[in-house]
Amino acid sequence: MLHGLGHAPLAEFVPAGGLRVDVVSITPKGEIWVVECKSCRADFAGDRKWQGYLEFCDRFFWAVDSDFPDELLPEETGLIRADPWDAALVRMAPESRLPGARRARLLRDIARVSTTRLMALVDPMGVSGAAS
């Protein structure tokens, strides 16, 4: 879905020590979106870190399946409904623009991690300790 919107998504990104987002995505306009995937009520209830992700994105979304109880999700966040074959943007997240210095650092870090992962696929022997 994100590719279809023209985004450049990256899975399993670490924006800061102790945090790991499921997906960070750069939009064609340069916005940074974070998407957290939740499989069930217990998965959501056990997530104590998601609010810490808000300072590392312009928009924050949950991606859940059709059986997930929407009433658990904060209304001030975005919602993506997904299944194994497709996904749809159900509720747009409100924008909370990142400060310029943080945006620049995040874009640099996303580029470095993406490039390192790509090079590890292209030349596994040439990349030691691929970034995560």
Rank of each mutant, 00 (worst) to 15 (best):
R112Y: 12
V35K: 01
A101T: 14
R41M: 12
F60T: 00
V122Q: 04
P99A: 13
L54S: 04
V127N: 00
V21H: 04
A42L: 10
D83A: 04
G46H: 05
F61G: 00
V127M: 03
D70A: 10
V24S: 07
E55Q: 07
R105F: 06
E75K: 13
I26C: 06
C40Y: 06
L79T: 06
K38P: 09
P94D: 02
R108S: 14
P69S: 09
R112M: 15
Y53M: 12
P28A: 11
T27D: 02
T77D: 09
C37W: 07
A111K: 09
A87S: 14
F56C: 05
H7A: 10
V127S: 00
F13I: 04
T115P: 05
D47H: 05
F61V: 02
D47T: 13
L2V: 05
T27N: 03
S96E: 01
T77V: 11
S25H: 01
G4V: 00
D70H: 12
M1I: 06
I32M: 01
R48N: 11
P28T: 10
D83H: 03
E76C: 08
G17R: 11
R97Q: 13
G4S: 05
I26M: 02
V90R: 10
I80H: 05
L10C: 14
S114F: 14
F60K: 01
D123Y: 12
D43P: 10
A101P: 08
L98G: 06
D70C: 07
L89H: 08
E76H: 12
C57L: 01
K38M: 09
V35I: 15
K49G: 06
R48L: 11
P69Y: 07
R103C: 12
G46K: 08
A45Q: 13
A130N: 02
A45F: 09
L79M: 09
L107F: 06
V21F: 03
D43T: 13
E36V: 11
E36W: 06
G100H: 13
A63G: 14
V34T: 08
R48H: 12
R102K: 15
T116P: 03
G17A: 13
G30Y: 02
